[in-house]
């Protein structure tokens, strides 16, 4: 699949897919990488080292700092894939150096799929 480069870089890993939007602030613990939003479909799951896939972001503008904090604390996702990346996530991934691509059909990706992401070229492959 070919999408739009949000933040360059390469990554490979296992997909962790959410069908619903994610708020990084209040939604993901920057110290552990565990999703903590009550009732969220990924509640209790850890994003560390995963290719985190979700349609869009929601919520607080502090989300950029949470993404940056995840990276600095060593618990960041290896890459982020979206349908539409909003500026809050874009600023966070660029600042943190986390590869990020959007404008792809995330419906083709299942949790556990092995993905290879070349975000600089906007290319995502399912192995």
């Amino acid at each position: 699949m070919r999408g739009r480069t949000i933040s360059p870089g390469k990554a490979c890993g296992e997909a962790l897919v959410s069908k619903t939007p994610i708020s990084f602030y209040g939604g993901v613990d920057p110290k552990t990488g565990i999703v903590m939003e009550r009732g969220h479909e990924l509640e209790g799951k850890c994003v560390k080292g995963k290719i985190l896939v979700f349609p869009k972001a929601k919520g607080s503008t502090v989300g950029s700092y949470v993404i940056y904090g995840l990276k600095r604390n060593g618990v960041a996702p290896a890459a982020i894939l979206n349908e539409d990346t909003e500026p809050i996530v874009a600023a966070g991934t660029i600042l943190a150096g986390i590869p990020c691509v959007d404008k792809i059909d995330i419906g083709k990706i299942r949790t556990g799929d092995k993905l290879v992401v070349d975000a600089s070229e906007g290319i995502v492959e399912i192995e």
């Binding site: 602030y25 920057p30 110290k31 607080s60 503008t61 502090v62 950029s64 700092y65 949470v66 940056y68 904090g69 990276k71 600095r72 604390n73």
Partner: peptide, 16 residues
């Protein structure tokens, strides 16, 4: 500017 509480941005934000 948002991202002011130490609770929200932690040490990485403070250093930044």
């Amino acid at each position: 500017v948002a991202g002011v509480s130490y609770k929200s941005i932690g040490d990485p934000g403070l250093e930044f």
